[in-house]
């Protein structure tokens, strides 16, 4: 089960499409209900960030496998303005000041591995992995 598929994010509706595809892949990999819901929420956050701050971008899913377990990798990419203060957006309570949305710290909590690269003016790439336990 080694495949990759992407969803382009241009309008708010695409967030739903990304969730749907991500959840389907997660289910196929063998994730349970709770993890599926967490993965879908993480996808929502990532897709919404692209929609709100970059305008357009895409989210790709990849079933992965290391020696011991299977997992799902989500990659969110955009060519938006980038994030200047990475440590600030990764701080609890920074982006969630309105109490809405989990922000990037939320994505990090929902997933197992999390990595972000961003360059001012050049866009952002976020990779997040959930492992099947």
């Amino acid at each position: 089960m080694d495949f990759q598929s992407c969803v382009n994010i241009k309008k708010e509706w695409d967030i739903v499409g990304a969730r749907q595809l991500g959840r389907d892949i997660a289910r196929k990999i063998g994730f349970g209900t709770v993890d599926q819901a967490r993965i879908a929420t993480a996808i929502s956050e990532l897709a919404r960030n692209i929609y709100l701050y970059a305008g357009t971008g895409k989210i790709c899913f990849e079933a992965i496998e290391d020696m011991n377990h299977k997992g799902l990798r989500i990659v969110a990419m955009d060519d938006g303005p980038g994030i200047k203060e990475l440590s600030q957006v990764m701080e609890d309570g920074f982006s969630t000041s309105g109490g809405l949305g989990a922000g990037l710290p939320g994505v990090k909590r929902l997933m197992d591995d999390f990595d972000i690269q961003s360059e001012d003016g050049k866009g952002t790439e976020i990779k997040a992995v959930k492992w099947l336990r």
Binding site: A37, R38, A40, T41, G99, A102, P105, G106, R109, L110
Partner: peptide
């Protein structure tokens, strides 16, 4: 019930955030 579970995810996150802010 699956629907209920889905709606609880954000509450769970908020709770975890609260815990970590409390530690801070």
């Amino acid at each position: 019930l699956d629907f209920l579970l889905e709606t609880m995810i954000s509450y769970g996150l908020a709770y975890q955030e609260y815990q970590s802010l409390r530690e801070r």
